Simulated assay, not measured.
Amino acid sequence: MPAAALKSKPLPTQSTAKRSVQLDLPCVPVAKRPLPAGRPREWYVTHNRRLKAMRLAIALLDSGVYMPNQARNEKIRSTAELIGVHPPSDTTCHMVRAFMRYNR
């Protein structure tokens, strides 16, 4: 057997766990599906409110607001304007803070 075949492979200089991630690429939106039919109206209202509150909570976290007490109604509403959604109600603002509290 040739001596070259018996040599051990050199160890990699970088770990394979460290991979470059490109964060500046725009997110690909998830395909929208129609909501299930036949539910009471209140279910749809609550569902859409949760989606909006989650979008706002994510936007606030991305902007550096990590604590629920930092997220006043004015801050949440200005963030809604930045991301292009209608200004949230007081109930939705409360839900945004609840999401932030839950995820701590």
Rank of each mutant, 00 (worst) to 15 (best):
M1I: 04
P2A: 12
A3Q: 06
A4I: 12
A5C: 05
L6E: 10
S8V: 07
S8R: 09
S8Y: 00
K9S: 11
L11W: 00
L11G: 05
L11K: 08
L11R: 08
T13D: 12
T13I: 08
Q14K: 09
Q14F: 07
T16C: 05
A17E: 15
R19A: 10
R19E: 09
Q22G: 04
Q22P: 01
Q22M: 07
L23K: 08
L23A: 08
L23M: 06
P26G: 10
C27L: 14
C27D: 15
C27M: 08
A31E: 12
R33S: 12
R33W: 05
P34E: 12
L35S: 13
P36Q: 06
P36V: 04
A37R: 07
A37L: 09
A37S: 09
G38R: 07
R39G: 06
P40A: 07
R41Y: 08
R41S: 12
R41A: 15
E42P: 00
Y44A: 06
Y44E: 13
V45I: 13
V45E: 15
T46A: 14
N48I: 09
L51C: 09
A53Y: 00
M54H: 08
L56C: 02
A57T: 00
A59V: 02
A59L: 01
A59R: 03
L60D: 01
L61S: 11
L61H: 06
D62V: 04
D62G: 14
D62Y: 00
S63F: 01
G64H: 04
P68K: 02
N69R: 12
N69D: 15
N69E: 15
Q70P: 00
Q70N: 08
A71F: 01
R72C: 04
N73C: 06
E74S: 14
K75E: 15
K75A: 13
R77H: 03
R77P: 02
S78M: 13
S78Q: 14
T79Q: 11
E81D: 13
I83G: 05
G84R: 04
P88M: 03
S89K: 05
T91Q: 09
T91R: 11
T91P: 00
T92R: 01
T92L: 04
T92C: 13
T92G: 00
C93T: 03
C93H: 01
H94E: 11
M95W: 00
M95F: 05
V96G: 03
M100H: 03
N103R: 11
